[in-house]
Design a protein around this nucleic acid. Structure first.
Lengths: 114, 114
DNA sequence: TGCATATATAAGCATATTCTTATAAGATTA
DNA sequence: TAATCTTATAAGAATATGCTTATATATGCA
């Protein structure tokens, strides 16, 4: 809800990152949860390198943070960022993605990473 | 401020359109004003075909509407659209673009289209 | 009707993007 | 240390994007 304004070039770059269905879904999933790479692979039905490359772009732009826990690397939204208010606002306008995580949990594929 | 949710694929497509500095500036200019093509050409310092092609994309996606007045075609934001709330919210996070129009007006180049 | 003005469209090219496959790197466990 | 698991990176190919130049279309006016 904060009204922070960012440079138009930076805003365009962030929006371009969000302007990809895969990345927007990733960010949508991270709105309510931390996720590890293998979960994205499972939910989005894409190859692990493809997911990793999307995550790298999001990380390079400061939209997400990573944290290793044993074998797994968990990603979460970076809320200490000048563009977080914009990202957060965008997320208000897309459908909740948590059901996808729940479906994953039901199928038993989430447990392995925890 | 409305909380309308759009399909994630449609949202991604809209964000991709906004994820270009030229188009984001165009939309930013239209937030407070109608503009004709030649004004965009002048402000953005780009060729007329390049501007026209950006406007076509924005129009095809329903983000803007056009209206011919004599020689000129004026563009304005399409606020009767399911994605307008998203677009509008994004605009809250970028700097005001109207100063660019004012500068154009001062240089006397805006008058010709009115 | 003929010409000028503003805008749109088409084709082509350079660059960017997003996958794929192959491989490397970091962490855990036997 | 060796084997295994998870993730990252690199290289290459297919496709998408955004410009340029050339041309078409629509309107207004002499």
């Amino acid at each position: 809800m904060e009204k922070t304004t960012v440079d138009i070039e930076r805003a365009a770059n962030v929006l371009k990152l969000l302007g990809d269905k895969t990345r927007l879904t990733i960010i949508g999933l991270l709105k309510a949860n931390e996720c590890c790479v293998c979960e994205f692979v499972e939910i989005l039905q894409m190859s692990q390198p493809a997911i990793s490359q999307h995550l790298r772009k999001l990380r390079d732009a400061g939209l997400v943070k990573e944290e290793r826990r044993g074998h797994w690397i968990f990603y979460k939204l970076n809320d200490t960022n000048d563009i977080y208010p914009l990202v957060s606002e965008v997320l208000e306008h897309i459908p909740d993605q948590t059901e996808k995580l729940e479906a994953l949990e039901k199928s038993g594929k989430r447990i392995q990473c925890n």
